[in-house]
Design a protein around this nucleic acid. Structure first.
Length: 244
RNA sequence: GGCACUAGUCAG
């Protein structure tokens, strides 16, 4: 069934969801039982191509075949709803399945992203706390999303607070975390803070990626900070001017 | 018990 799933997934990601659906139909007609992974993969494909009706039909078919949805399945649905701004329905779905399905951080994060997209950061933070309440440890991914949205909304104090909180919770700040916070700081002209973060980053052994360097370079060029410009230029040089 | 493995989160 793994082999089938690789095909189903490939077809879905190539936009051939109808063909993917036919694979499942073909499986059942040959007496091969599609499993939760197969259904989830297809439902994800259907959701991502706007075929919500078909997606819910597949969910029903799955449940009718006595296959219980798992965290992945619920995440796929919740994520689709959230991205359409249907966060209320997404939360309702969670309420229905809580206690039956072991939801994980990714599931809650998907709704959190939905609230972020609506600019409802208070609700997004509520979801972060909901994870903790359910004994789920929010991961770097969750924090990166929040930091990014706070930064984009010019709420750098909130963003910085989360950024500082990460190591205290044992969360590793990766290249995306740093890029996001640097982007935010440069955007509102907090160059000194940006420089300090760069120091911190290098002190912790992280190499700033070229995107981070370039956005910093742009900022420090504007302020005429020659030493920083030179420093950033050197980092870029060592990386060989990659264009990611 | 450990590792690996086919699906999910704005890291476009």
């Amino acid at each position: 069934s793994r082999e089938y799933n690789m095909i189903i997934d490939r077809l879905c990601k190539d936009g051939l969801v109808d063909d993917a659906l036919n694979i499942i139909v073909g499986m059942t007609s040959r007496g091969i039982c599609a499993d939760v992974v197969n259904y989830t993969t297809l439902i994800d494909g259907l959701c991502k191509h706007g075929k919500w009706k078909e997606a819910t039909a597949m969910l029903r078919e799955m449940v009718d075949s006595d296959i219980s949805p798992n965290a992945h399945t619920i995440t796929v649905l919740v994520s689709a709803l959230s991205k359409q701004g249907r966060t209320k329905e997404a939360e309702e779905l969670l309420e229905v399945v809580e206690g039956h399905v072991d939801l994980d951080v990714v599931t809650y994060n998907s709704i959190m992203v939905g609230y972020c997209l609506q600019g409802r950061m208070d609700e997004a933070m509520r979801l972060l706390n909901a994870m903790v309440d359910r004994d789920l440890q929010p991961d770097s991914y969750c924090y990166n999303v929040l930091i990014k949205r706070y930064s984009e909304n010019m709420k750098l104090d909130e963003a910085m607070h989360l950024f500082r909180e990460m190591p205290l919770l044992g969360l590793k700040r990766n290249i995306f975390t740093f890029r996001t916070i640097l982007q935010g700081l440069v955007q509102i002209g907090r160059y000194t803070a940006a420089r300090e973060i760069l120091n911190e980053m290098q002190a912790s052994g992280q190499v700033p990626d070229s995107k981070s360097c370039r956005l910093l370079l742009k900022g420090f060029c504007k302020t005429g900070n020659t030493s920083m410009v030179v420093r950033l230029f050197r980092i870029l040089e060592e990386e060989g001017f990659k264009s990611d």
